[in-house]
């Protein structure tokens, strides 16, 4: 019992200490950090790093880009994936099954496998240095997992509901909007959170397709701070906190949904 409690505390500290150090370092000067990375700042807490990072960087722009890309990617992935899931559920024939397999195959292929041809495709389409380009690629890369989760859920909905709606004269679009979507809300919300975390944190696609500062998202901007600030950890951690803030705040309030969402992709398998 004692050993159990000890292990739980050690693990908790392993998570907490680094996070506290990040917060603490962001309100210290570089000199104070070099003097003692774990100590409370001698000169008291200062928010100079936060002011400096907004002056030196186009933080607001990066933040806006991340928000636009994430919102559109999540919404459109959910819309297109639930349409496909509905289609597969309703078709209930070999075509539906074949399409399901085709989409889920995408889960097996890591994004890094197709980055080379995808890059030249984006170049040909003129979709580099474009938020629209990022959104389109994001949708196609998370569509497989979303289709997988949503189809699994929609298949458990009672068939009689759809049949009754058909008799009442409802067409496919009405049935999709009035029956399938409302009943799939638990699964949709879990998938939405999973997608939010994925798209907000994505580094690979911006790294490949964005070179213009005007279109950079937070993870890419953050990565480039490293080249600029080197081991100026107070500045780097200030960036980390700003970039993670929306996710962390959402996590505090929607914890249960996050846990359900982030494991949905795995558990359903």
């Amino acid at each position: 019992m004692l050993f159990r409690r000890f292990s739980l505390i050690v693990y908790a500290l392993l998570i907490l200490i680094p996070l506290l150090v990040v917060m603490l370092t962001s309100v210290k000067t570089l000199q104070e950090t070099f003097a003692n990375p774990l100590a409370f700042p001698e000169g008291g807490i200062k928010f100079d790093n936060y002011i400096a990072i907004f002056q030196e960087q186009t933080m607001a722009g990066y933040f806006l880009n991340s928000t636009i890309v994430t919102l559109f990617s999540v919404t459109l992935t959910l819309l297109f994936a639930s349409m496909i899931a509905y289609g597969i559920t309703r078709l209930n024939s070999w075509i539906g099954n074949a399409l399901f397999v085709l989409f889920t195959l995408g889960m097996m292929v890591p994004a890094q496998v197709i980055m080379v041809p995808l890059y030249s495709l984006m170049l040909d389409f003129g979709l580099t240095n474009s938020l629209v380009g990022l959104i389109l690629v994001n949708i196609s890369s998370t569509l497989p997992i979303a289709v997988f989760i949503l189809t699994g859920f929609m298949k458990t909905l009672p068939k009689e509901l759809f049949e009754a709606a058909t008799i009442d004269g409802a067409g496919n679009w009405q049935m999709f909007a009035k029956v399938a979507i409302p009943l799939s809300l638990p699964s949709l919300s879990a998938t939405a959170i999973f997608l939010f975390v994925m798209h907000w944190n994505d580094l690979l696609y911006p790294l490949l397709f964005i070179t213009d500062n005007a279109y950079k998202t937070l993870p890419l901007a953050l990565l480039e701070f490293q080249g600029q600030y080197s081991t100026n950890y107070p500045m780097l951690f200030t960036g980390v906190i700003i970039a993670s803030a929306p996710m962390v705040i959402a996590y505090v309030f929607l914890q249960r949904f996050f846990v359900a969402g982030m494991t949905a992709g795995a558990v359903k398998g």
Binding site: Y11, P18, P37, W200, N201, L203, L222, V240, S244, F258
Partner: peptide, 23 residues
């Protein structure tokens, strides 16, 4: 505790990379 242990999962890889580069 489960929520705490789960927490790093929601961070971006770049953030985690910076935290551990410091460690």
């Amino acid at each position: 505790l489960r929520a705490l242990y789960f927490f790093p999962t929601i961070l971006s890889s770049v953030s985690v990379a910076f935290i551990w580069a410091f460690i």
